[in-house]
């Protein structure tokens, strides 16, 4: 049951990781094309230039839950390294419940109002020829934080499973 829930969430986080990877490649192409157009053709598009930071921001924000799922967030392992699986799991459960979930949920909550405001005002770029629909990129903030909270739930589930059965969990979070 727990395992199944964890697997479903993991698939969601992996999906976000793939989306981010594609967004990154688009961003690379975007910057490259912008340089090429400006230098070779003396042609600058404000919309394309703004698209650069839209893609870049979406890429790292959506990457955060994915990185949590793959155990990529840095830990200081002065103590952690030497602990038993049981103790590591307890730290992850406690940290998840005390730090990660409240932080992500609270920021996500305020992010909703932030994006909603932009939607109501019809906010767009202040520069000529810039991008419209600013609310979309602003909505990435609550979405990414909620997704990170969801991914954090999977991390907690994973630790619970590890706590029950100290030998194996199916995914590698650096726990085992």
């Amino acid at each position: 049951m727990l395992l199944k829930a964890e697997k479903i969430i993991d698939r969601f986080s992996d999906f976000l990781g793939n989306v981010s990877a594609i967004i990154f490649l688009l961003m690379l192409a975007n910057v490259f094309i912008d340089v090429l157009m400006r230098y070779v053709f003396n042609d600058v598009s404000i919309a394309m230039q703004e698209m650069e930071w839209h893609l870049y921001a979406a890429m790292f924000m959506l990457g955060v839950p994915y990185t949590l799922r793959t155990g990529g967030h840095v830990r200081v392992d002065l103590v952690y390294e030497g602990l038993s699986v049981k103790r590591k799991s307890i730290i992850d459960i406690a940290g998840g419940l005390l730090f990660l979930l409240p932080f992500c949920l609270l920021v996500g909550w305020y992010g909703v109002g932030f994006a909603h405001e932009a939607y109501l005002l019809g906010e767009k770029s202040g520069d000529p020829g810039g991008l419209t629909h600013r609310w979309i990129i602003k909505a990435v903030i609550p979405f990414a934080f909620f997704a990170t909270a969801v991914s954090g739930v999977a991390m907690i589930l994973n630790a619970i499973i590890a706590l029950k059965d100290e030998h194996e969990t199916h995914s590698d979070r650096g726990l085992l």
């Binding site: 949590l68 967030h73 840095v74 830990r75 200081v76 392992d77 002065l78 103590v79 952690y80 390294e81 602990l83 590591k88 730290i91 992850d92 406690a94 940290g95 005390l98 730090f99 990660l100 409240p102 932080f103 992500c104 609270l106 920021v107 954090g152």
Partner: peptide, 22 residues
């Protein structure tokens, strides 16, 4: 102190800030 326990750095910063800030 919390960092030493080994929970990911990013969320330790965020969580400690949340607790003290709130």
């Amino acid at each position: 102190l919390m960092l030493i326990f080994g929970f990911p750095v990013a969320f330790t910063f965020g969580g400690v800030a949340l607790i003290f800030g709130v």
